[in-house]
Design a binder for these strands. Structure first.
Lengths: 327, 327
DNA sequence: CTGAAAGCGCTTACAG
DNA sequence: CTGAAAGCGCTTACAG
């Protein structure tokens, strides 16, 4: 049905050369006479020739594209991670697509369609239980790297979330007040366990200091719910210490305190996690992860696999640090 | 270098059938004997066979994948738009990749690499001057649909931003005070002109009412900058009316008023644009766009093109509406 | 229902 | 530097 598009053969014929030569020209091979090159290029222009990427990929064996799989597409974390990945891959002539898993159908697609993973040179998967996600079939020739989850099979780049929780605990236990935690409970076994690890590190630190936690709130990744939890917390205690396992939960807390005229250091202490831009603006103490660095590291691991270096599974771990600000 | 993976031939040989039969099995053709089908499936299992997507695409001519190009990957707008698109395409067995253009390099890649656009069955491009973006080469067999920009060449789905600005003006001109606008100035000709249209509609309405605009601030998409503008505005006037061409700018304004104890309706009036979740939570009056509907509409247009219905360029326009809340 | 074969449009040794 | 040809791994009429 599609109207036949112009192929390498058409170009070769019109230019009076072999298809091999045309191929060398479009691939920028150095072994082509400058004159013939220019001539071929002109014919390509005239004909409006564009190489068929599928044919190209079938015979060359690569796509020069990688795919990154994220659980969501909201927030700046992913863009930062991606720019780290870009930094490594762009100089190799690669670029990357993103495939966000915000719906059931998208999960299903990844799990069931082998084309998906195989249609690209490599995959970076963020914050998901990769081993479970890909257990159905094992992509053989397509390398994958896991970020924010320590895979059993694949190279992984992780952040020490337990440690992050600990340093949050070390900081907050300096102060007096009732200690609360606001965190997210994962809904599926496919989600990674970062939030749990952060909470566990926090608990460990708090217990070491001989303090106790008043209550742990487990909620959805939802602003309003966090806001309501803040309301409840400040009703229960008037000297409050809060650890939120992500800055997203810290924002509504701050929002609530401002509405009520509560002041940091005096009425409450707060430590978030992620160091998002907004945390900086709102002056919230938080735990910072080197996101771009993590992206670069993931990119390097994947690139090495793509280039065929085989060695055993490797995991790179980063340490978070605390950024102490107004709260 | 890559270790040879198992192909359709290996399966055919081991199963004692022709490759055609294997092909029919993996493509779920109804014209296969149930018994042979099961047998082939078993062999596929044993061998761990996975069809090569490139070969498949080369001979079938389609990928069952579309790509969506967004200027950024931050915020909820894109995820909503995408879920509208998904709704149309998923029932046809398609899924979509996203390619965010947050960096110079990514712009370059789209403009220069034909593989990119051709490697997929269709393209939806959001909030970009498509005609300029793709002027270098015209994708012949790959349909494209433009969203939030009325293309001269391609099917487009747009929102009437001028009208949106007008109804914001109609609303805000009910009140007394000095009128200010906070908007974004596009940096490149590739960006779409939505913000300008919103401002123009607003101006038209305001002038019709015989009012004047005190000042129009053109800033980056930056929270802090908007915050500082808010500070300046409230220094200049004590009865303030603000139209922000996106809710992102409304948030810091609200933040500022809360810090200063300024109250809506009394000290100021504010109307944003986009109706993001946060606007709902912060109770901000804003202009709402039917984002999911727009995504569905874009999906339908693209699907028709992919299926080969040819007709002349079509543009679907949606009307925004005002959501009046506390401000 | 099924097999043999042509064809999809490239890349890449190979021989010159 | 360049052309002819094999090969990449599928799909799809075609003939049975």
């Amino acid at each position: 049905m599609k109207k036949r598009s112009v192929t390498i053969k058409d170009v070769a014929r019109k230019a009076g050369v072999g298809v091999g030569t045309v191929s060398r020209v479009i691939n920028n091979s150095p072994h082509v006479n400058q004159r013939t090159k220019e001539h071929v290029l002109k014919v390509i222009q005239e004909l409006g020739y564009m190489p068929n990427p599928h044919a190209r990929r079938l015979s060359s064996g690569h796509t020069k594209i990688i795919t990154t799989i994220f659980p969501q597409m909201v927030g700046e974390f992913h863009q930062l991670l991606l720019s780290g990945i870009d930094e490594i891959f762009e100089k190799e002539g690669y670029t990357s697509f993103v495939y966000p898993l915000y719906s059931e159908n998208r999960y299903k697609f990844v799990r069931e369609s082998s084309d998906f993973v195989l249609g690209t040179d490599g995959v970076i998967i963020d914050a998901l239980n990769v081993d479970r996600l890909l257990q159905q079939y094992i992509p053989k020739n397509v390398p994958v790297v896991s970020v924010e989850f320590d895979s059993e099979k694949y190279d992984s780049v992780i952040i020490d979330n337990f440690y992050g929780g600990m340093i949050a605990g070390d900081y907050l236990s300096n102060f007096e007040g009732d200690i609360y935690v606001i965190t997210h409970r994962r809904k599926s076994k496919l989600e990674s366990t970062v939030f749990e690890e952060r909470v566990n590190g926090f608990i460990e630190s708090i217990e070491k200091k001989g303090r106790t936690i008043e209550k742990i709130f487990e909620i959805e990744l939802d602003w309003l719910e966090a806001f309501n939890v803040a309301k409840e917390i400040f009703t229960r205690s008037n000297k409050v210490i809060i650890f939120t396992t992500t800055d997203y939960f810290a924002f509504p807390v701050i929002e609530f305190t401002r509405i009520k005229g509560l002041v940091p250091q005096k009425n409450f202490h707060l430590c978030g996690f992620d160091n998002l831009t907004l945390s900086n603006i709102l002056n919230i103490t938080t735990i910072k992860q080197p996101i771009v660095e993590m992206g670069k590291s993931a990119g390097e691991l994947l690139l090495r696999r793509i280039k065929g270096f085989t060695r055993k599974k490797q995991t790179v771990a980063f340490k978070p640090e605390i950024i102490i600000r107004e709260t």
